[in-house]
Amino acid sequence: MKRRHSPKGRTRGSRKSPATTPAATGSGRLRIIGGEFRRRLLPIINHPGLRPTPDRVRETLFNWLGSSTSGASVLDLCAGTGALGLEALSRGAARTQLVENDARVARALAGNLAALGISDERAWIITADALRFLAGTPQAFDVVFVDPPFRQGLAARCCAALANGWLADNAWVYVETENGLPLEVPENWILHREIRAGDSHGRLYYCCANHTPASDA
């Protein structure tokens, strides 16, 4: 199947049927929880360490976010299966950028975008390392998902990099890490809610533009 790649690593999905995409040879299924594509099942390729955010966690997260994804500009870092970015698109995100380092995983994700009929203007994939991507020219996003591979020390580094112009005023940032990992985030990020499931710990932060940290007495 032919795919076009931009010089910056943007991956576009073709409009072939789901049965002919690389993702169709996967070993599992991803279910969209709500919105336009509710109940759609998408294939997941068999790839080491590829772990979609569980249904229960996604449902809880998007209940917390409410209407915040509608019309939003979304960034899905370390996208993997794209479970979070695809859910945001289903719930009305205006545009979603998905960053995935592994080329094979990115191709499978492109196949699922094509299967849903999502246009290249509304969603696109950058095949790149998350930290290298964040070292580039920033653009402000309303909602950001940070779900890096566990036990590689990436979460805090991604959060610190996001503070360098990647967040719109009053943005939401969801960070998923392994259980038991202390997480340092920028001082103006306010923890809104958190959830634990299995080996994962999800935290949703509200990035308050006007928040001034209290000084030590």
Rank of each mutant, 00 (worst) to 15 (best):
V175R: 10
C159A: 13
W172T: 10
I126Q: 14
L131H: 07
I125V: 09
P182V: 03
F150A: 01
L162N: 01
L131P: 10
L183S: 03
A171P: 12
W166G: 01
E184H: 09
R193K: 15
R196P: 03
L191V: 01
G198R: 00
Y174I: 00
E194V: 00
E187G: 14
Q152R: 15
E194P: 02
L154G: 01
L134M: 03
W172P: 10
D169E: 15
L183H: 06
A155S: 07
L167Y: 04
A161H: 10
D199T: 14
A163H: 12
G165V: 11
A128S: 12
V146I: 12
D129R: 11
E178H: 06
L181K: 08
D147S: 13
R151M: 09
I126L: 13
P182I: 05
A161M: 00
V146Q: 03
A128Y: 06
T127A: 13
A171L: 07
L134K: 06
N170T: 06
A197F: 01
F141N: 04
R132C: 07
R193W: 09
R196V: 10
I125A: 09
F133Y: 15
R157P: 15
Q152S: 06
G180W: 04
F141D: 00
W189E: 05
P138E: 02
G153Y: 08
A140W: 01
P149Y: 12
N188Y: 10
L154F: 09
D169T: 13
V173H: 05
V144S: 01
A171Q: 10
W124Q: 08
V144I: 15
D169P: 09
G198F: 00
N179S: 15
D147T: 13
Q139F: 14
P138R: 00
E194W: 08
G136F: 13
R151V: 03
L181M: 10
V175L: 11
A163N: 15
A140I: 11
P148D: 02
D199I: 09
N188R: 14
R157L: 12
T177K: 08
A163I: 09
G180L: 04
W189G: 04
L183G: 02
V173I: 13
I126S: 14
V143Q: 00
L181Y: 03
D142Q: 11
P148V: 01
D147H: 13
E184G: 05
W124S: 07
E187N: 14
N179C: 14
A155N: 02
F133N: 08
W172G: 05
L134H: 07
A197P: 05
L183W: 07
L183N: 00
Q139C: 09
P149H: 13
D199H: 09
H192R: 12
C159V: 07
A128I: 00
I190N: 13
T137W: 06
F133P: 08
I126N: 13
G153K: 02
R193Y: 12
D142S: 11
L162Q: 04
C159D: 05
L134V: 02
V185F: 05
R132Q: 15
P138D: 00
A197M: 01
R193N: 12
L183R: 06
D147L: 12
E184Y: 00
V146M: 04
R132I: 09
N164P: 11
T137D: 07
V143C: 06
A130S: 15
R157K: 15
A163C: 07
D129W: 11
T127I: 13
